[in-house]
Design a protein around this nucleic acid. Sequence first.
DNA 1: CAGTATCCGGTCCGATACTG
DNA 2: CAGTATCGGACCGGATACTG
Lengths: 113, 113
Amino acid sequence: MSLKLRKNRSPAPGNICPLSKCLALLSGAWTPEIIWNLSAAPRRFTELRVDMPAISAKVLTTRLRHLEASGILARHVMPTSPPSVEYSLTALGAELLPAIATIAKVGDQLKFG
Amino acid sequence: MSLKLRKNRSPAPGNICPLSKCLALLSGAWTPEIIWNLSAAPRRFTELRVDMPAISAKVLTTRLRHLEASGILARHVMPTSPPSVEYSLTALGAELLPAIATIAKVGDQLKFG
DNA sequence: CAGTATCCGGTCCGATACTG
DNA sequence: CAGTATCGGACCGGATACTG
């Protein structure tokens, strides 16, 4: 009968699918840092590289393209010379910030953090 | 799609570390689903396999061990025959739920979700 | 029931070199 | 400045087989 108690479990109403999808988006090395570095103000490509010295250009480009395609951030090309490109969070991307902050807080308390 | 965040890499000089660390924890295929499936009530190993038919025993074991080591969930062995093991979220793990819910909500609105 | 052991293909990421 | 191209090694996760 403890089986009976257990049978009724569905966690919450709803679909778990978006979960994996969005967490998949946040995954990938450097992704959270990128979002974090854009949270205060827009940044340019090279500025982001300075913020995260260890990231390679290739990976940074890949992440930015993915996040842009998903609507998390926007890319603005300024027609200057030399070219200048600015990245900024969208409203949707900004919605992630509180969640990320919460997760970071939990991260602080991890046993093997 | 795989959820990946290398833990050995990117020592990033920064101070955003808890962020990456915790997101690294949530990464790895199936991790969010596991936490979600434990959110309502404790579950046993095979019950989790039923909840997520596509996960392999190897990966499920790996995830559970990691989450346990981090203090996100607890493992209780019941001295029955056949053996029975119950997994449940810790208080710390429960703190992740609102953040995960928020992220899932954003996931719903992703352009290429 | 609750795992372990092993193999293996696919992916991710870093390093390096090059370009409009 | 803001990328692209390519290579190679690390790692991840699925499939399968086996165990106390």
